[in-house]
Structure formats: structure tokens, C-alpha cells
Design a protein around this nucleic acid. Sequence first.
DNA 1: ATAGTTACCACGACAGACGTAGTACGACAG
DNA 2: CTGTCGTACTACGTCTGTCGTGGTAACTAT
Lengths: 115, 115
Amino acid sequence: MAEISSDVIRGYNDIIILYLLLNDPSYGYEISKQIRLMSEDKYIIKETTLYSAFTRMEKNGFIESFVDEDLAGGKKRTYYRITQAGKEHYRAKCEEWTLTKEVIEKFIADEGRLV
Amino acid sequence: MAEISSDVIRGYNDIIILYLLLNDPSYGYEISKQIRLMSEDKYIIKETTLYSAFTRMEKNGFIESFVDEDLAGGKKRTYYRITQAGKEHYRAKCEEWTLTKEVIEKFIADEGRLV
DNA sequence: ATAGTTACCACGACAGACGTAGTACGACAG
DNA sequence: CTGTCGTACTACGTCTGTCGTGGTAACTAT
């Protein structure tokens, strides 16, 4: 099966992650499972990619983190919450997506042209 | 106006350039003008990006170069021609694009959800 | 015991895009 | 006759998001 390469997905992980934070805070493991589910296994984000995206986006003020230390078994979990700036970033990225889509599709040839 | 960022376009320059070589050989300056024209100024490829893409794709066997030394004024021009492997690469990238599009669009929220 | 799931992090490598700068020729304006 | 603009590249180094490798730690089922 065809896979989505890292060069192609680059720049869209922000959209994907922020989308999953729009309604409620969430955390790494949960988000990675949701991406897999929603994409029907077409995109499985790498753990390192995800966690470094969190770090980057928190640094940029798009998300905020808080830790839940009261999990069963003395475990911790780091949650992320989208900020107002994050919502604006999300919206801007979505607009950029629309633009990009329009542009790219001009460079997709009809089937007949490929010999 | 919104611009297309390098992270978002990354991975699609191959499609764009190869598309413009599908019918006839062409060269850097001409291709950059065509991209600008076809995208209605929405995407203006950087010279360095374009020429390094040529080098990379020639190394990968997707294109072949030949030089026209007989231009007016003793100038040279390097043309590029798509290979069979290049056409297959183009087709594979187009399929990847379709897949990526399907995935990304699942993470685009309705207008109403953005407050 | 040990494999699997949950939940995360550090470190460094990689590659494509990009910024800066330079070369070289012709045309055309002032 | 000097300077800018357009044509047509090239070299070199930097940046950044992704990814590979490997590690920690606690619980759960076989």
C-alpha cells in the first residue's frame, strides 16, 4: 500500500493535532490512536514526531500543558489544551491547505497523459 | 495574502516540476515562470529550491539533462527531460497526493467549530 | 517469567527548502 | 557610458520538522 511520506505530511501535523484538541484537552498516546483511527490506518504518526510537535507548539504558544498525577498506579499523564493562538494557527493552516490544494491540483495530469 | 510555506509545499515540488516536463523538455527559468503563471502567483518557487530539485531528481533518475550551447550571444541553457522512472515517480506521487488529501480533510473542522 | 500495552523522553541524523551571494551576457533608459 | 533589469544559472551554508534508536517505568494477561 502507498504510504504518506514524511516530506508530504510535513506541515500538516499541526492541523491534525490541533484538530484533536479543538473540543477537549488530550494527551500523546490518545491522540496517536485517534489519528490512526480517523485516518483508517493511512497515517500512523511516529511517537517522536508527535512529542516533538507538542514541544514545538507549546513553545509557540499554540497549546498549553498540564500534568495529571493522580492516575491509577501512580502514573502520570501530560495533557495539552489548545490556546486562542492555537485556534488562530489552526484556522490559518486550514486556509493555507485550501490554497495549497488549489495549486497542487493544477499540476495533476489526466490519466490519459501518463503513458 | 496567505502564502504557502516551505513545510507545506515540501514533497510536492517533484509533482509540480515533473508535470511541466511531461510533454516537452524545459529548463529552470522557464519552469519557474510557468509555476508562477499556472498558480496565479500563489506559488513562486525559489531558485535555489528549483535547481537543487533538478540535481536531486537527476541523481534519482527521474530526469535527464542536456545543454544547449547554441543560444544567441554565446549563452548556455540546461534542459531537463523526464525519464520513464520519472513518469512512474510522478504517478506514485499523485496517488500519494490523493491519499494525503483524503486524510487531511478529515482533520479540517467546520466553520462553526472555530470560535 | 515475559510479552504486551500504556505513556513518555533524550539524542542525534537526515533531507528538502531557503538565504545570501556571485557570475555572466544582452537590452534599454537616462 | 553607466546603471538597472531580465535571462540563466551555481555554490555554500543554515534551518527545521521528521524520524531512527534506544531507554524508563508501571500495570495486565498468559
